[in-house]
Design a protein around this nucleic acid. Sequence first.
DNA 1: GCTTGCCGTGAAACGCGTTTCATAGTTTAC
DNA 2: GTAAACTATGAAACGCGTTTCACGGCAAGC
Lengths: 321, 321
Amino acid sequence: MTNIRDLAREAEVSVTTVSRVLNDHPYVAEDKRRAVRDAITKLGYIRNQTAVQLSTGQTKTIGVMLPYVDHPYHAAILHGIAQCAFEEGYRFLTWQTNYIASHEQTVLQALAQREVDGLIVVSHSLPVDEILRYEQYGPIVFCEHHEDVSSVYINHYTAFQSGLKTLQSFGHTQIGICLGRPDSTNSRARKQAYQDTVSPEDTSWIYQQALTIEDGADIARQWSNQSCRPSALLTASDHVAAGIILELRKQGYRIPEDLAVIGFDGSDLAVVLNLTTVAVPYETIGRQAFSIAISDNWRDHPQIEIPTALLSGLTAVEVKE
Amino acid sequence: MTNIRDLAREAEVSVTTVSRVLNDHPYVAEDKRRAVRDAITKLGYIRNQTAVQLSTGQTKTIGVMLPYVDHPYHAAILHGIAQCAFEEGYRFLTWQTNYIASHEQTVLQALAQREVDGLIVVSHSLPVDEILRYEQYGPIVFCEHHEDVSSVYINHYTAFQSGLKTLQSFGHTQIGICLGRPDSTNSRARKQAYQDTVSPEDTSWIYQQALTIEDGADIARQWSNQSCRPSALLTASDHVAAGIILELRKQGYRIPEDLAVIGFDGSDLAVVLNLTTVAVPYETIGRQAFSIAISDNWRDHPQIEIPTALLSGLTAVEVKE
DNA sequence: GCTTGCCGTGAAACGCGTTTCATAGTTTAC
DNA sequence: GTAAACTATGAAACGCGTTTCACGGCAAGC
């Protein structure tokens, strides 16, 4: 493997000059520049990126902590990160944590060990302040809202409220909700929006642990077994909504006549099912998070709220008298 | 930032001994080991991973080249890679290329510059032999079949054949297909299977450039405008199948009575639509590709064929007389 | 005519952990 | 009892590019 010292010898210049040529520094005479270029070609030199990283103290790499790379909305955030990273000449390392605390620790460790210049936390299970202890090693940007933390987020309270109000405007009074992980920040905000907006008569209309299509089917069965049912459901994700709709149709119920359903995410599934859904611009979240992670002002803990939009389908429509 | 030399001074040992303690080398006396450990705690030392990488010449990182991180089946492969990488103590860098040749070059460059120890090429647009020129710098594993190349793949010929034969066994004789990128290796194999299996009467039953839900809707419109139509369609992906089904239902056609449809991938969409589909274990492909990339025998160009399975739904059923 | 200031170049230090090699004291082996 | 085989330890080299600092030459400024 030829290195810059070999080049220097071949081109009869100093390593400094070689380095200057490599980095397009102006203070190099044209003939020496050419000599170095010729040496590069002749010896087939290729820069060792690791050495550059050690030398500059920068990896030009951002780490991404997320629970599952193949969940549609995490993947969409990743997409935004990938776009932005490429444009900025950065790379990114992805860690799939499955929400396992020890795996999340590994990611934080990587920041401390200077494997990455910064971290984007898409979703996590460790307490925020434990994660923030690692901010001394570099920027940490969250994709959900926390106080005094760099974050790019959607307002789950208002987003959920918009879904609930839509159902109300369609004439529904018996409204239930589905929540994902019960103790997550997002779920808490959503629950609060629910309590503030519809003042529910029955806590059995809050369906917990709603994450997958299968969870949706479970919830549909729960619903159909209840004596006192909601007439409308705001779900935690399009996947859950899909599970509910499919199971209920299988059981002979009609959507939205027997149960109006609103999804969350604005995914492909929503298009396919003609699902009314709260659309979230996940790609934008990824892009913004990335730009904070590589900006100089991350210490100011910038906070960016990304707006959501209600996307109308046919699973939640005006109630006919 | 304290380094290994500071530790050596503090613990009154040599840097070699410190390095030994850090790497759990056995030839260190217990008292010195403790002294080093104490120094680590006292000075708050954290290993600089970049220095380790430069020193060992290994990054313990694998690069992944794929067109889009948020396409379900690429994400599924990524999921497999992520799992395997974590288990093996590796990291992975993802490059989203959008099938742009210059972006793919960047990825190859990264291998040459020793940013990664190896490369997994999920899908690509550059010619294979151009990519293989970089094999001198490290293992390159493909997720599709090519001769004399490390690869983990599904046999698109037999996979497509199984779909076609299923349609035939259901009584269909007028069978069409959808293909994705016209010149890809996969499309060629699929087309061959089509020609060998159904000996099509009409080339207008091959629908090209079928990649997204929207493409599917386009194809549905094409189909409904044709005077001589196939009675069954084997599609390039579940997304395309979904687009076709939704558009045709909107136009008042019935699936499978007017058109039987089989998808490809075995994705969530298939579950939701009760779609008959050719299921592909993408996660397994990712895992296997990863293990080849970090194995010693990659120079032998191992080839692993992963089997597919037909998953029955309701969009392709026995033709009633 | 002399001081600034810019251009061009290189030696050496720096970032930091790993590894080779030499040395010396102990055991084990026969 | 002596050779062979461990165990334990450190100096120095290595991997490799960047950056600081010093210095000579030359042109512009007054």
